[in-house]
Design a protein around this nucleic acid. Sequence first.
DNA 1: TCTATTATGTCGCAACGTGATATAGTCGAG
DNA 2: CTCGACTATATCACGTTGCGACATAATAGA
Lengths: 107, 107
Amino acid sequence: MDKRIKRYLPMTESAYYILLALTEPRHGYGIIKQVEEMTAGRLKLGSGTIYGTLSKMQDDDMITVYSDEKRKTIYEITDIGKQILRLEFDRLDELHRNKERYKGEFL
Amino acid sequence: MDKRIKRYLPMTESAYYILLALTEPRHGYGIIKQVEEMTAGRLKLGSGTIYGTLSKMQDDDMITVYSDEKRKTIYEITDIGKQILRLEFDRLDELHRNKERYKGEFL
DNA sequence: TCTATTATGTCGCAACGTGATATAGTCGAG
DNA sequence: CTCGACTATATCACGTTGCGACATAATAGA
């Protein structure tokens, strides 16, 4: 596992949901709407957040620009992106386990 | 729910584990060791991280300084701190549910 | 025609994590 | 009794990041 991958962990909530929204190729605005749906309206991503994160992810080969139809830019997750997402899944599992283990102390 | 609380969500991994380590009052170094144990050595908090986060949390009444025995400073979680932690638990539940729901698409 | 929605992009600020650095007490091995 | 390892706390500067604000424009419907 190289440094490029490690740099992305822990993943921010925004970055995590942006990647998770890419179950299928989507354009920026579609990602915003998908994340809103996944979080029941809780998380509304600002344009600076998606387009900023998206171009950073592109630099790091986590996503590719899929196509340009009219003025839409379609993003697609790469194998590297999937790999990082899976590592984040593992981290989330750990967080979840520790939550279950200790939450009783804080009720 | 006031702004003071909302400002802490989403919580960073470091802040989350620091609070979670306060199941009982602990001093800074004890928190570092407890977090290391909870994460099986994965997360080693730097001194800048704990003492920085700890004094910020103190400013926001999430923790209180419990006592000074010799040169140790003991930190204890407050009711506000517990409240924020519980909201973070809820957010983590949502993350976990969405992970379970979509992870199949990335294997 | 006007307004809401879709759609993309940039800029600067504030916040955060962290390593480096400094300081000092304790305790066991040699 | 000395030396190194570990315990313990604290501050500073640095780079990265998230994100709101702002700008721009096309499209669809009222």
